[in-house]
Design a protein around this nucleic acid. Structure first.
Length: 508
RNA sequence: GCCGCGUUGGUCAAUCGGCUAAGACGCCUCCCUUUCACGGAGGAAUGACGGGUUCGACUCCCGUACGUGGUACCA
């Protein structure tokens, strides 16, 4: 009987949540649902200097928007709280001290300056990345080098100190990663990580194992950037006597920049013109970072795109509902290699999903844009327009760009599309067309087309040669739904007015 | 530098020792449409390199190269 599946998404509230975080949350969610387990949200706010107001709410809102809500944790309650690490502060120290007593950790009194000096000295001696480890700790101020009475005295005097893990010498630490298989490390290569900081807060290393253990986490998924410190966590489970309760690890591949090298960062969005955050976010410096939601993405599309970045069910199908993802998801099929973010493909997914959406939903978004432009329109009309141009929309807020001419007359004309083939005969055709249109009693699509084509035949001009100028008169450019559909939709009077207006402008 | 992880078309990727190497995005051509888009039909484009193991290697092993991550009292 295996234990209940409990997974957690544990972000730090340091700003907007970028899509790498969203994907980590998604994989956790899918795994939890797949195994009828729990999905919890834990906030890792142990670094008080990096805490950002509002970031926690942002994370919760993102999860809600994406439809991958936790069922336990910050904002959701549960039996294993508190779920904010800052609120758990009092419980970490005892574990760190337990480790000290057992000889697996020690007090270190080195000041930041002393640490800096040590590093400078080592660098000067040719070590590019000095560590506080099995070798250097011998020369530092800690409970391993200082006489015990001095240590006791410092502790009692309340001298600032940290607790560091004492990495063993010449040992191999290995564990089986759900995605990568067996991974092993030599302890000599790992430094004596700080477990408890001078301010009494735990570092990530201590907090993640204490919390995962006490919250009964069964599977721990996190980004690949954590792999190098995994041996510290594995050892901590061992030293704390929780080895048999250690969650199964899975280190997720990174999401990389579309161009060049490195992992996707906040900067790449601005540089290449696409969002990397879930929602719009304004930093306290007033810097605005755009989000997928405001950009016009549908959460289902974003999720669908993200689930396939680093995971593949092995079938040709690419469009999945959340339920289908849950059904097919398998952590063992997550890739080992990082994946480059491809905005074109991301847009394709959104286009697919926009096509499925109702005209009414599209109209909701479009009405807001119309309101901003002070344009009033009947709801039914807006919905009809949305239906007409939907297939041309990649984003939810694309309707205006594809349909503005239904709401206002063109402000300029694509003269290059008309001028070269414009003739006096064509002008006469349109003059006549105006009166033919005015004589019409009804204004049906087919009827408009018939009148237009009959007149073209009378004047012996090819219909195709006339349709383009007609389109330019109505829309201003070479785009949009079928012309007769446009004429029908804007109505007879407006159509006639636009022809007249265009004719006065077509002076070539 | 050291350590970890990785490497199938431009990108996402299938393949679990039998490959004439799927599919999707993007790109190109054609058809539809005398617009744009959608849709349809085609096309170009891939196993980093070198050694093994094997009847047979994209698949397994080793080395090299390259990429990526870590190397903080940040997560």
């Amino acid at each position: 009987m295996s234990k209940r599946v409990r997974v957690r998404f544990a972000p730090s509230p340091t700003g907007g949540l970028h899509i790498g975080g969203v994907r980590t949350a998604l994989f956790n969610y899918l795994f939890a649902k797949k195994h009828s387990g729990d999905f919890l949200l834990r906030i890792e706010d142990t670094d008080q200097t990096r805490f950002v107001e509002g970031a926690e709410e942002y994370i919760i809102e993102t999860l809600k928007w994406c439809g991958i809500e936790p069922n336990e944790g910050v904002g959701y309650g549960g039996e294993y709280g508190p779920y904010r690490q800052s609120e758990r502060k009092p419980m970490y120290r005892q574990y760190a001290e337990r480790l000290v007593e057992a000889g697996h950790a020690y007090y270190a009194f080195d000041t930041p300056q002393e640490l800096e000096e040590m590093r400078e000295r080592m660098k000067a001696a040719g070590n590019p990345a000095p560590q506080y480890n099995w070798a250097t700790r011998e020369y530092m101020k800690n409970s391993l080098t200082l006489p015990s009475d001095v240590v006791k005295q410092k502790l009692e005097a309340g001298e600032p100190h940290v607790i560091r893990i004492k990495m063993p010498r010449n040992e191999e630490v290995k564990f089986e990663d759900l995605i990568r298989g067996w991974v092993s490390f030599q302890t000599n290569q790992v430094d004596d990580k700080v477990l408890l900081k001078a301010d009494g807060m735990p570092t990530y290393h201590l907090a993640v194992v204490v919390d995962d253990f006490t919250m009964k986490i069964s599977h721990a998924f996190r980004g690949e950037e954590w792999l190098p410190s995994a041996p510290v966590h594995v050892l901590l489970y061992k030293y704390l006597g929780w080895e048999d309760q250690m969650p199964l690890w899975a280190h997720l591949p990174l999401i990389l920049k579309p161009d060049g090298n490195g992992k996707l960062s906040k900067r790449d969005g601005d540089r290449l013109g696409f969002p990397v955050f879930s929602l719009d976010w304004t930093t306290k410096d007033g810097e605005r970072q755009s989000g997928f939601r405001e950009r016009g993405f549908l959460p289902e599309a974003l999720i669908n795109f993200l689930v396939l970045l680093g995971w593949n069910p092995g079938i040709a199908q690419e469009i999945f509902t959340l339920d289908e993802m849950v059904e097919r998801f398998d952590i063992a099929r997550v890739h080992q290699a990082g994946a480059k973010f491809d905005f074109e493909k991301c847009k394709w997914f959104n286009h697919q999903y926009v096509q499925k959406i109702s005209n009414s939903q599209l109209a909701d978004v479009t009405e807001k844009i119309l309101a901003e432009k002070n344009i009033k329109a009947e709801r039914a009309f807006v919905e009809h327009i949305c239906g007409l141009v939907k297939e041309r929309c990649t984003f939810m807020n694309d309707v205006w760009d594809n349909a503005f001419f239904f709401f206002q007359r063109p402000e300029k004309y694509d003269v290059d599309a008309v001028k070269p083939k414009w003739t006096e005969e064509k002008r006469q055709f349109f003059d006549l067309l105006i009166s033919r249109f005015e004589d019409l009693n009804t204004w049906e699509n087919s009827e408009i087309e018939k009148v237009f084509k009959d007149l073209a035949a009378e004047k012996n001009i090819k219909v195709g040669e006339l349709q383009m100028p007609f389109r330019i008169m109505l829309c201003g450019g070479k785009f949009g739904p079928p012309v007769f559909e446009i004429a029908h939709t804007i109505g007879k009077n407006e159509t006639v007015e636009r022809i007249k207006l265009a004719l006065t402008n077509f002076n070539f």
